[in-house]
């Protein structure tokens, strides 16, 4: 109790920034809101019933899994390779390290918009390039159908997630003491064996942080899909996040969208819980 005055600022911050908004979201999901935003009273579980009755929901949930797992796995794999490379000494390493930050530093909407223009079949520079080098015969509308649009958006999601992940892994690599690596080589471990038995286990905490932050980020990502696949009709290229957005903007169902966002919130908490439980990424390394 004595500590309370010292904890107060932190508590106020947590209540104000985390608990209140989350609580308000849950509260809204149990209200009956008109399409113009007027609160018409208690709705019970009606909004939730409506969410689980939405026809596109199975497609959207599948998309969300593909989107999150696909993007995070590819991002982490690429980052592991890239970080290993950046950990070597070579001329121009500093410059390269800076350059790799760019996709991360740039606004996601801007990056996605650049790709939207680049992939346009009429005047897109990427399309023109692919035609000129002969990979495709004529310009292709990459963002004009759900499958290729969704995959293109995933590629951009990987592109913007790689820098941060690489730097987290790179930081992890730099915490590995040199004598451990030396000991491994004295014991006769080859390069592959050293990596999988010594380096990789010691990267666990860094990978845990990178994976969790990426899962949350990618799962909740709206701008990439909104910018790149927003024009595609139907819900075949929607994740729960973009679907929620369409429920508000196109269908004007604020209350249904609130219920869906609570479901979204629960899903992400469960996913992270399972990840922590099964992968135990925070476990101490016993060499």
């Amino acid at each position: 109790m004595q500590a309370l005055p010292w904890l107060l600022p932190a508590l106020v911050l947590i209540v104000g920034v985390v608990i209140f908004p989350a609580g308000y979201m849950v509260y809204t999901s149990f209200r009956d809101l008109s399409r113009f935003g007027k609160d018409r009273g208690w709705a019970g579980f009606e909004n939730y019933v409506r969410v689980f009755g939405l026809d596109p929901l199975p497609t959207v949930l599948t998309n969300t899994v593909v989107w999150t797992v696909g993007t995070v796995v590819v991002t982490v794999l690429l980052s592991l390779v890239l970080a290993q490379f950046l950990n070597k000494k070579f001329p121009g390493r500093k410059v390269l390290r800076m350059v790799i930050i760019v996709p991360w530093a740039a606004s996601v909407v801007m990056t996605s918009t650049v790709f939207v223009y680049g992939l346009d079949p009429f005047y897109g520079i990427i399309n023109k390039f692919l035609v000129d080098v002969g990979i495709i015969d004529e310009p292709y509308g990459f963002l004009k159908n759900a499958t290729s649009g969704f995959l293109s958006a995933m590629a951009v999601a990987v592109f913007v997630s790689v820098p941060f992940t690489t730097f987290v892994v790179l930081a992890g690599l730099q915490t590995i003491p040199h004598d451990v690596l030396e000991a491994a080589s004295i014991d006769g471990a080859g390069k592959v064996q050293t990596y999988w038995s010594v380096v990789f286990p010691m990267l666990r905490p860094a990978l845990a942080v990178a994976a969790i932050i990426n899962i949350i980020n990618v799962f909740n990502s709206l701008p990439i899909l909104k910018t790149m696949t927003g024009a595609i009709p139907g819900n075949d290229a929607d994740t729960t996040t973009t679907f929620m957005f369409k429920l508000i903007q196109n269908d004007r169902q604020i209350d249904t969208a609130s219920a869906l966002s609570v479901v979204n919130f629960v899903v992400i908490i469960v996913v992270i819980g399972v990840y922590l439980k099964v992968v135990k990424p925070m476990r101490e390394v016993n060499a």
Binding site: A231, I232, P233, G234, K246, N250, D251, R252, Q253
Partner: peptide, 19 residues
């Protein structure tokens, strides 16, 4: 008509599917 907003939204998200 108060329902036009959602109707117009439905056109935006669905009518392209005639393709």
């Amino acid at each position: 008509n108060p329902a036009w907003g959602q109707t117009s939204g439905a056109f935006k998200s669905d009518v392209g599917q005639i393709e």
